[in-house]
Design a protein around this nucleic acid. Structure first.
Lengths: 206, 206
DNA sequence: ATAAAAAGCGAGCCATTGCTCATATTATAT
DNA sequence: ATATAATATGAGCAATGGCTCGCTTTTTAT
């Protein structure tokens, strides 16, 4: 039995040279996605932009999808890093403060490489089951539900599942669209944060 | 000057045979988009599904984009037809009734061929300037703003531009996501309509 | 020093894409 | 009936896509 042909893509990059190659490929994928869009992001182009041969690309990534998945993964890590601490804090605040903090968090999250975020948001749905992709949102969703449950008494809504859906969906859409508009000043973003907070608080509060 | 070579795509389909061909192509495009997704929707496949030769396709549509644009156009006409009358009615109702009607309208609009709607919603942003595409939304947006202006006294918000953005974005996202979830019963959809109405009304009302 | 393993290379295969064009068929007008 | 315009056809081209494979270079281990 041959010692596993070299052409089957490996996953591990044991030497630092190869780790650099992998990083360059992920970075190049993100850059190409933003600059050219998903359709024009061919593996050859990505390899070129990374300064790496197409052969090397396929040593570490079995497919174009795998490459995009790696970019998504990295992006989500970045967002999580920017946000996780604050999320924990918010859990112990009273309703209005908590909501305001969550909205601010959502804005911050969307401001981590917004152009990449846009491309990914457009592409993820059609990539079918990219299992991890929803995990982050699901986690935030669960956290929020949890918060509502703990503060049940202060709320005027009975169905917390539905309430979570309403709040998370609305906040996500508002911040997403606002950040993508790009032309918004800081003052306008503050106004939006105020309004979004008010929207959610009034909806929830008894 | 040659009498315009036959290979340059025409636009008009003067005989009914050709009108049928055009219809079949638009219909086939919609069907392929839904069944195979945008990436797999090649012109050859579309022509095949329409039972029309690839040559004929290019007599009426200069490009794949034109085909998709025609589908978008047709879909938007369908939605408008399903909704326009009610929109006018809503304009003369008091706040809560009006909002409830608008939310119900949004649900109805999203239920016109939801699978097609999903594909189009994913694809339109990346088709760059597909000018007419936003027109429908912009019209609804303007109508809503108009309503707010006329009922200014009953509202607790000053910035009507921002308020319109908040309301339209939230309602659109909620109905869009809810309809795409697909697994929702009528009862659940009613609950969602209630909650969405409440969300908007509480946000707006003094 | 040397052999083996790891990493890198890129010409090129094969499938598919959007699309053209020379030709054939059908409709309309006289 | 016949000429002309309208419509339909599909083989096939040029471009591009994802990806493989035989090979070279670099690193690591002994």
């Amino acid at each position: 039995m041959a010692p596993r042909p070299l052409t089957k893509p490996r996953k591990d990059a044991s030497q630092k040279r190869s780790r650099a190659t992998v990083d360059a490929l992920v970075e190049a994928t993100a850059r190409v996605l933003v600059k050219e869009g998903f359709d024009k992001a061919s593996t050859n182009r990505i390899a070129g932009m990374a300064g790496v041969s197409i052969g090397s690309l396929y040593q570490y990534f079995p497919s174009k999808e795998a490459l995009v998945a790696a970019v998504i993964d990295r992006h989500q890590r970045d967002v999580q890093r920017a946000v996780r601490a604050e999320l924990a804090e918010a859990m112990n605040l009273p309703l209005e403060k908590a909501v305001r903090k969550l909205v601010a968090m959502a804005v911050k999250a969307h401001r981590v490489d917004p152009k990449l975020h846009r491309v990914l948001a457009e592409q993820i749905p059609r990539m079918g089951k990219l299992e991890d992709s929803g995990a982050f949102n699901r986690e935030n969703y669960a956290s929020f539900r949890d918060y509502l449950e703990r503060h049940r008494d202060a709320l005027a809504v009975g169905d917390l599942e539905l309430a979570s859906f309403v709040c998370v969906t609305a906040v996500e859409a508002l911040t997403h669209n606002a950040v993508l508009a790009e032309k918004l000043s800081d003052k306008e973003m503050d106004a939006l944060t105020d309004h979004t907070t008010r929207l959610i608080v009034r909806y929830l509060k008894a």
